[in-house]
Design a binder for these strands. Structure first.
Lengths: 235, 235
DNA sequence: TGCTCGATGTTGACAGCAGCAACATTCACC
DNA sequence: GGTGAATGTTGCTGCTGTCAACATCGAGCA
């Protein structure tokens, strides 16, 4: 009938079918773009629908709510973070096992910060939706690569090659993670956001070198036994 | 006239004067309460006005916009953070200058984390509105106590008493800040939010001990000269 | 004493957001 | 070829921040 012809004509002209065909992917892509530009605040369902050229509620056919969309972006950010860390790892060509393990820990941290500085928006989204790290005690992760597992593996290597005192191993992953994460957060959205790039890089390298040395065996071990002890209860 | 009488009656009954009398303070207090409970997201101008019993726009007579209100809360949070750090500092009763300076650095970090864990909502608000740290080069702060200045003072003390190698001093403040800030962030809103309190405390103390040792002089100095070096450019 | 003006508070509007419900279109399969 | 499920749209509610116009009040001046 006539109305159908009009509809068909409009379709042929605008190339806009009623069914988008790939809306879920298109929304996810748009969400990643928005998050890169504006961080978590850029993830507005209606705005994304507008960008993709679809009505404001269509997204809810593919995502339960806004959080589900954020989770998808966080997943992509996680992948990017892992890739950045792996890129750095791959550059380590030391042959000496000890030097190699030490270098790998440093590069892991550098890769983490690399990603945070290169993709601050995605990095921020990632940490609004980061899953709880499981037990810290029960090792069996099984999952595919995640940054925390990579860090643990690097630290275990340091123990295996005899550089890291096994007694210092517990909690080391949290110490390392805290340092690089804090550095990243302070630099991308925090009080250090205006630090010049070269100064930032030098400071990061100094910090990573201190981490390397802090967990070094040898003279450190006996010094560690003389660590200052004092009242340690919380106030 | 009649209307006046009605108004007067309502006033006497509800004890609600047209002019609140202390709206700015009342709003700020309500904002702090809301931030304590729900973090930055709890700071909704309309909701606060509702709580204080005033119309939704009255707040704009006292705060230019929502950000101005957030700044006030951040200011109070900053005060709380400084107090928590000072409380911890005050507990150090070592007499030996070196041990005293080392202990003070550790307590500073512990106080920082204390506050973040005790007031996660306020801590988060603080870091959505934290001012840029000035130059990092030009010392003359002049301002009243702020956490970064306290940290710098503690590190300078460590140099003065001969524990911290002056060559290691530059950037040390960022390394220390990053570690405790990262620890705080990961633990209050991040992947470590479910860690048991006792384990958390032990891990923190281990990290602080490593910071203490990482910046120790002596054997560390020569080891530092042998630090692993490698390509350090960002990808 | 009474008036006036600035400070303070209110009402009403607009726009953007998340999300629910009812309706429309299309596709895939029987 | 028809029918039901999947997908997309329209319209609504209620929340938010913010602007503009109006109302009320208190302090200071005539």
């Amino acid at each position: 009938m006539y109305a159908d012809n009009i509809a068909a004509y409009r379709r042929s002209v605008t190339a806009t079918r009623y069914h988008h065909g790939n809306l879920r992917e298109a929304l996810a892509d748009a969400a990643v773009d928005a998050a890169r530009e504006h961080g978590p605040d850029g993830l507005a369902v209606r705005e994304l629908a507008r960008r993709v050229g679809v009505s404001h509620n269509a997204a809810y056919r593919h995502f339960a709510d806004r959080d589900a969309l954020v989770d998808v972006v966080a997943g992509r950010a996680l992948t990017g973070l892992v890739e950045a860390m792996e890129r750095r790892l791959a550059r380590v060509d030391e042959t000496d096992p000890v030097l190699r393990a030490r270098r790998r820990l440093i590069e892991l941290g550098a890769g983490y910060v690399d990603y945070a500085l290169a993709e601050p928006g995605l990095f921020r989204v990632l940490f609004t939706a980061y899953p709880e790290v499981p037990g810290l005690d029960d090792k069996p992760e099984g999952e595919d690569a995640d940054p925390f597992a990579m860090l643990n593996a690097a630290l275990d290597d340091l123990v295996d090659v005899g550089y890291l005192d096994p007694a210092s191993r517990p909690g080391a992953e949290i110490g390392c993670w805290s340092a690089v994460h804090g550095f990243a957060v302070l630099n991308i959205e925090g009080p250090l956001r205006a630090m010049p790039a070269d100064e930032r890089e030098a400071t990061l390298q100094a910090m990573l070198a201190h981490i390397d040395l802090a967990y070094g065996r040898g003279q450190g071990a006996e010094r560690r036994s003389r660590a200052v002890q004092g009242p340690q209860d919380a106030s």
